[in-house]
Each structure stands twice: as C-alpha cells, then as structure tokens.
Amino acid sequence: MDSIITDSMIPKPFRIHRMLKETHDTYTIELESTNGADGFPFSSGQFNMVYVFGVGEVPISISGDPKTPKILKHTARSVGTVTKALLKLKSGDVLGVRGPFGSRWPVEESVGNDVILVAGGIGLAPLRPVLYSFISHRDKYGKIILLYGARTPEDLLYKKELEQWRGRFDLEVKVIVDSATGDWRGNVGVVTTLIPRIQFDPLHTVVMICGPEVMMRYTLKELQSRGVKNENIFVSMERNMKCGICLCGHCQFGPKFVCKDGPVFCYEHIKELLGKREI
C-alpha cells in the first residue's frame, strides 16, 4: 500500500473512550486520539466530519469543553444510516475524525454583555461548549441565561448537568418540553414562550440560538419584539455536507458555505436568506 499523505479528506483514527446514553436515541461519544496526541483543540460551534468504517461520514458538532481538549465529545442522535451505525459502536471501537471545521460562537466578543443561549432539542449540544466557557469565565459576563426546549422530559440531554446548572445562583436555566405526562413538574409549551419570562437588557445582550430552523425563526421574532438587535443574535445552521472543506458544493446557503462561513452565522448577515424558502 502507498504511504499516507496529510490530506483534509483523510480521517484520523480516534478510539471511543465512552458511550454515554443521553436518551433512547441520543448518545454522547467521548473520543481519544489513538496515537496519544495531546488532544483536539477546537472552538465552540465547530464541527467534525465523523467517519464510521465502511458506512459513511456525517457532520457532528463538538459538544465538549474547549478547555479540556484531551477528550473529544460529540452528541449524536440516531437519524440516518451513519448515525444508526455510529450509535451501535462500543467503547474501544475506532472511528475517523476530520476537523475541526467551521465558524465559532462569539464567546470572547460577548464579554461584558448579558448572554442568552436558546437551545431546541439536540441544539443544546453545540451550545454546551459555550456554556462551559461562560462558566469558567463567569465574572466576564452579565446575566447568563439558558432556555432549553425538548420534546418530552425523557428527551432532555445532559440531565445531571442541567440539574447542576439550575442549582447555581449565577445562572438562570429554564427548561420546557412540548408535552409531558403527569409526573413532570416543569414547564410545558414551546421554548419561545420562555422569552417573555426572562429579564435582560436588550441593548447589551448577545443571543445564541441552535435548534430546528422553525424554532429558530420564531425565537428570532420574539427576540426582535424585545428589542434585541440583529447583529447581536447568532444562529447555527445546518445543510447537507459531503466534504466539510468548501469543495463539494453541497452545503450552500445562498452565497454562504455552511462549512466555512458557518455553521455559526450572525443573524444580520443571513436575515434575508432565512426568510426565504428552499434556499
């Protein structure tokens, strides 16, 4: 066989250190490099192309703490061929990783402001790294608010961590589910209804939103009615990706490439595009 050449289409092997079950169809996969390298430095909001041997590759956001890059974490939901195969893997198995790719959440740029994270469903995964960064530099920010909507209480991610975050006096965490059976004591409804219930200074607030596009659209409307400026709102977009390195053309969103100009976008730059269908 021929020798290996460094190439951005070649995945690097990573071993599964642990598969953490979050919900019935979602796992957090914790990875370590197979060659004992120092870790996987990345910025919040970035993603990797994750390869399952012989099956295929999918883009998955990195959901771990940028401060501890030794263990690389991804939270994935079983939705297609590759993710189904991915979630059947066990601790010790090896998969391929290419990355990190894409733009990042404005963590440093938000210093001095109130910050609101609005997460819908698995959208909490790409926002978790941001929350970690905010917590480790708590004094640099004003209010830190997490609004998290999920389908049912059983679909909540990071349940233990959510409880810890809710328990802190310097974080405001509101969780809401679309529907619940009798023993749920929390909020029921759609995540946009949480926005009128929080206090913040709209002129000095940065909002980061991640979730299904419909949910992001209605969240944007609520935020605008509160007076938050478009240039202070950031969203994470998703499109079909085959390469992750701006060469295959699949992830185009108008003139933007989601793999390079995104996945994190400032709403001001894409507001016209988001309002259009089938772009």
């Binding site: 469903g121 999920a150 679309d178 529907s179 946009t192 979730g211 419909v214 209605y218």
Partner: peptide, 13 residues
C-alpha cells in the same frame, strides 16, 4: 401560535 409550534413536533424525527 404556541400550540401550533408544539404541534409541529419540531424535535421529532
């Protein structure tokens, strides 16, 4: 409006 969004089941597969 809120109910309609809930109906969409946006987090479902």
């Amino acid at each position: 409006e809120a109910t309609r969004l809930q109906l969409l089941d946006v987090y479902g597969i």
